[in-house]
Amino acid sequence: MFILTMPSTAAVCLLLLWPVASGTAADDLTVVTAHPGDDVILPCQANDSSIIAVEWTRPDLEPPKYVLYCSDGHCDPTHQHPSFKDRVDLVDRDLKDGDVSLILKNVSSNDNGTYECRVKLDSSRRKKRAIIDSEPIRTIRLQVQNSSPVGRYHGLAAGVPVGLILVAVAVVGVLMYKRHKNKRSGQPAADDDDDEALGDTLV
């Protein structure tokens, strides 16, 4: 068995470089990750541009399960789940070029779940119900993740030049070495001398 090993520092660097928010597809399921407060786009592209209605649902919700239903450029909130009120929209309400991607604003952990996208084509003129009886053309898994300590350290490090960090580490190392050397030789450390001088001044 081949086992890949690496120094811990290299492993940490790889973790820091790993994208926090990304989309990956596997078995027709797209995973989108985000952090609380983000605005995210759940992508969905129809092969046919003659779309008259689009429906986004979340099957794991208690009824009503509708995230958004739009027909002919107008969105109908009648069957919409209350948690998505005023937080969702389509990237393009005109449904040009088959783009029916969903915008979800200010996400939270409550938005974790599976989202399904369905469309109704111009050949089907039934508009009575806000339900599209067809298989989803896209399934999205949204994962809203809290920032990890690694992510926070990454953000901190990103704002500080690498050279400055190395200089600071070098200075601390030199000071610790000199302090240790002075103690071993019996000489008082520099800060001890300062403390004595300060005491004499106060007296």
Results as ranks from 00 to 15, higher is better:
residue 108 S to Q: 12
residue 190 A to I: 15
residue 147 S to H: 02
residue 57 T to A: 11
residue 79 H to C: 08
residue 101 S to K: 06
residue 112 N to M: 05
residue 125 R to I: 02
residue 186 G to F: 04
residue 149 P to Q: 04
residue 139 T to D: 07
residue 135 E to M: 08
residue 25 A to M: 00
residue 195 D to T: 11
residue 153 Y to P: 01
residue 31 V to Y: 05
residue 184 R to M: 03
residue 114 T to V: 13
residue 39 D to I: 11
residue 160 V to K: 06
residue 200 D to S: 12
residue 28 D to G: 09
residue 66 Y to I: 08
residue 34 A to D: 03
residue 13 C to V: 12
residue 174 V to Y: 08
residue 179 R to H: 06
residue 199 G to D: 08
residue 118 R to V: 14
residue 199 G to I: 01
residue 43 P to G: 03
residue 75 C to L: 10
residue 171 V to A: 02
residue 52 I to W: 01
residue 89 D to K: 03
residue 30 T to R: 03
residue 4 L to C: 14
residue 69 Y to V: 00
residue 149 P to I: 15
residue 58 R to S: 13
residue 166 L to F: 03
residue 22 S to L: 00
residue 11 A to F: 15
residue 40 V to E: 02
residue 71 S to C: 13
residue 128 K to F: 07
residue 167 V to A: 06
residue 127 K to M: 13
residue 44 C to S: 13
residue 192 D to M: 13
residue 129 R to M: 15
residue 161 P to Y: 04
residue 93 R to P: 05
residue 129 R to W: 07
residue 112 N to Y: 06
residue 203 V to L: 04
residue 20 V to N: 03
residue 181 K to V: 03
residue 1 M to K: 10
residue 122 D to S: 14
residue 169 V to D: 09
residue 96 K to Q: 02
residue 94 D to Y: 02
residue 60 D to N: 14
residue 162 V to N: 02
residue 112 N to H: 05
residue 160 V to C: 06
residue 181 K to T: 08
residue 202 L to T: 15
residue 189 A to N: 04
residue 106 N to G: 11
residue 68 L to R: 09
residue 142 L to Q: 01
residue 198 L to H: 08
residue 195 D to N: 08
residue 119 V to G: 11
residue 145 Q to R: 12
residue 46 A to F: 04
residue 113 G to H: 11
residue 108 S to E: 12
residue 153 Y to T: 15
residue 189 A to F: 14
residue 105 K to I: 05
residue 177 Y to V: 15
residue 128 K to N: 01
residue 194 D to Y: 05
residue 135 E to A: 15
residue 175 L to K: 04
residue 105 K to R: 02
residue 184 R to L: 08
residue 50 S to C: 09
residue 165 I to N: 05
residue 140 I to S: 14
residue 50 S to W: 00
residue 107 V to C: 03
residue 47 N to Q: 10
residue 86 D to S: 02
residue 146 N to I: 13
residue 2 F to S: 03
residue 97 D to I: 00
residue 177 Y to N: 12
residue 81 H to V: 11
residue 19 P to N: 05
residue 53 A to C: 07
residue 33 T to I: 00
residue 177 Y to W: 05
residue 6 M to L: 14
residue 107 V to F: 01
residue 128 K to S: 07
residue 158 A to I: 00
residue 73 G to A: 00
residue 178 K to N: 05
residue 128 K to W: 01
residue 129 R to S: 13
residue 122 D to K: 01
residue 40 V to P: 12
residue 23 G to Y: 09
residue 114 T to D: 10
residue 158 A to F: 08
residue 184 R to G: 03
residue 178 K to S: 09
residue 188 P to S: 09
residue 68 L to H: 09
residue 119 V to N: 09
residue 75 C to P: 03
residue 187 Q to S: 14
residue 154 H to S: 12
residue 9 T to C: 07
residue 195 D to F: 09
residue 180 H to K: 10
residue 124 S to Q: 13
residue 119 V to C: 12
residue 35 H to E: 10
residue 59 P to Q: 01
residue 21 A to K: 10
residue 96 K to Y: 04
residue 3 I to P: 02
residue 26 A to N: 14
